Amino acid sequence: KFLAAVPASAFFIGSLIGSAIYGRLADSILGRKKSLILSCLLTSITGFLTSLSANIWMYVFMRFLNGLTRSGIGICCLVLATEVIGRKWRGQVGQYGFFFFTVGFLTVPLIAFYTKTSWRSLHRIMAAFPFVYSLLILRLVEESPRWLLVRGNKTQALSVLAGFARRNGKTLPTDLQLLDPNFSTNLVNNVRADTPKMGLWECRWARIRMSIAMVAGFGVGFVYYGIQLNVENLNFSK
């Protein structure tokens, strides 16, 4: 039972480390879209390589790498989906992605049923999905206008927003100006004063909210994945 649990533990340890890495990449040099494509491609590669494992410890290592590489998918998808949505609908849109998360969980047992004679085939089939997703993202998904603006690319940010407006049958105002989100805008004597925004952990209310969210997220994840991974030990037949 110990060896059976090690691959899953390695996967989640990799996910924990990968979340920090992809969060940094998505906010800095790569942006949300490129980080998402990179995560999908690496997830596909490590998933396929997992099927070639020669022993349990190689399998554990590949599961660790798979968790490390796939963690950027959830992060970047959520940010890409919510950064272009107004405050009114942001909460609902953020939840819609989890419907597909659930569909994925329900699909895996179905695929596993038809590949029950070969766990290697299961990993190879699962590795194909993120590769296909990367191709769809490359063609259909736009970079976050907010990230483009933060990086100083106002022209491309306006182009992305114009595309969104066009798909909704609208046009952007000709005099539209985008403010740099790196600065907060205050009006002092009717004169705009730009001051740099404080960092997340430098602002007291942000620290409190983030700490509460982290504790709540840990609790939910602990219960959710704890039940999922321990379901084989639940004696439903008794």
Rank of each mutant, 00 (worst) to 15 (best):
28 S>L: 08
214 M>D: 10
15 S>A: 13
216 A>E: 07
237 S>L: 15
53 S>W: 01
169 G>E: 07
35 S>N: 08
25 L>D: 00
30 L>D: 03
49 L>C: 06
137 I>C: 03
38 L>N: 06
38 L>P: 03
95 Q>M: 07
5 A>W: 15
193 A>I: 14
152 G>W: 09
106 L>F: 11
213 A>R: 11
98 F>H: 08
24 R>E: 00
201 W>T: 11
33 K>Y: 00
128 A>K: 11
80 L>R: 03
199 G>C: 01
131 F>N: 02
127 A>P: 04
101 F>A: 12
145 P>H: 03
101 F>D: 04
100 F>T: 06
61 F>D: 01
154 K>D: 01
73 I>Q: 01
75 I>D: 00
99 F>V: 05
4 A>L: 14
46 T>E: 00
185 T>S: 05
4 A>Q: 15
233 N>V: 09
190 N>M: 10
148 L>A: 09
226 G>E: 13
40 C>Q: 01
180 D>V: 12
230 N>S: 12
195 T>I: 09
190 N>L: 11
13 I>P: 10
18 G>P: 10
76 C>F: 00
126 M>I: 15
34 K>F: 06
47 G>S: 01
171 T>R: 13
132 V>E: 09
70 R>Q: 13
89 W>N: 13
141 V>K: 06
31 G>W: 03
68 L>F: 12
57 W>I: 12
211 S>R: 14
124 R>G: 02
31 G>N: 04
156 Q>F: 06
1 K>Y: 15
10 A>V: 11
157 A>Q: 04
116 K>N: 07
41 L>W: 08
129 F>C: 04
6 V>G: 07
92 Q>G: 12
185 T>P: 02
12 F>S: 09
58 M>W: 04
222 F>N: 02
195 T>Y: 04
90 R>N: 10
133 Y>M: 07
106 L>R: 07
118 S>C: 02
67 G>M: 11
213 A>S: 15
235 N>T: 10
184 S>K: 00
167 R>N: 10
230 N>H: 12
137 I>R: 02
39 S>M: 01
232 E>H: 10
66 N>S: 08
185 T>I: 10
126 M>Y: 06
97 G>C: 06
45 I>Y: 00
202 E>I: 09
70 R>P: 09
105 F>Y: 15
86 G>Q: 14
209 R>V: 14
161 L>M: 05
103 V>A: 15
54 A>V: 13
14 G>K: 05
184 S>I: 00
134 S>R: 07
215 V>M: 15
137 I>N: 03
154 K>T: 09
160 V>E: 01
199 G>D: 02
29 I>L: 08
97 G>T: 08
227 I>R: 08
37 I>K: 00
81 A>S: 14
137 I>M: 03
198 M>R: 07
151 R>C: 04
74 G>T: 05
184 S>H: 00
84 V>I: 15
5 A>L: 15
89 W>D: 15
195 T>M: 02
41 L>Q: 06
118 S>H: 01
115 T>I: 06
64 F>N: 02
